[in-house]
């Protein structure tokens, strides 16, 4: 029985642990080459700007900002704040961030998703409300008309899947790339 146990383990290590993932990688390369490598976004000269699926940090006032991140958008790590709803550290952080938000975006509603950390620390999306609330600031910093920015946000808003599953959202990197085009950069 010991010999069967060892032979069984080796056979299935090769089959499930090597053949299956490598065959999947081979198929992925043939059928979905872009996704297989991580849905990368490249500049005109071919350098990688980032990934469609991975959030990145935006701090300049002329860009739309993503959510705050527990790993500071370090995409070779990932993770959440893991702060409990009753944790005083969560409350302190939110108080400071709300104050900063109000200073940078006077008169705008406080978007709940923007001032909380995501589960991954790499959330590429914000809610359409969080994008709208940033329009006055972006308009002032870039000189682009607020109405054009509203249209830009609307055209980058993705609805629920099949109209049912998940939540409406805006991909921050894609939105900012479109914004750069408007600015002629």
């Amino acid at each position: 029985m010991v010999s069967k146990a060892v032979r069984f383990s080796l056979v299935f290590l090769v089959l499930c642990g090597l053949f299956y993932p490598l065959a999947t990688a081979g198929l992925a390369r043939l059928i979905f080459p872009r996704q297989a490598e991580g849905s990368l976004v490249r500049a005109g000269d071919g350098t990688v700007i980032g990934s469609d699926l991975i959030g990145q940090s935006f701090t300049s006032p002329e860009y739309f900002h993503g959510r705050i991140s527990a790993v500071n958008y370090n995409a070779s790590a990932s993770g959440a704040s893991n702060l409990a709803p009753s944790d005083p550290a969560l409350l302190d952080r939110v108080k400071a961030d709300v104050a900063r938000w109000r200073a940078d975006n006077p008169g705008q509603p406080v978007p709940a998703d923007l001032l909380t950390t995501s589960g991954s620390g790499l959330d590429p999306h914000i809610s359409p409300e969080a994008a709208d609330a940033q329009i006055p600031r972006v308009a002032q910093a870039t000189g682009i008309d607020a109405a054009r920015l509203r249209a830009l946000v609307a055209s980058h808003t993705e609805g629920r899947t099949f109209g049912v599953f998940g939540e409406p959202r805006v991909n921050v990197l894609e939105l900012n790339l479109a914004l750069r085009q408007l600015l002629g950069r």
């Binding site: 702060l83 709803p85 969560l90 409350l91 406080v110 001032l115 995501s118 589960g119 809610s127």
Partner: peptide, 20 residues
């Protein structure tokens, strides 16, 4: 606790926007 700070609705701490 977050509602009192002006963050209305569901708690999004630790959640992804696409899932809600």
């Amino acid at each position: 606790a977050l509602h009192q700070q002006g963050l209305a609705g569901a708690s999004m701490e630790g959640k992804e926007v696409r899932f809600g």
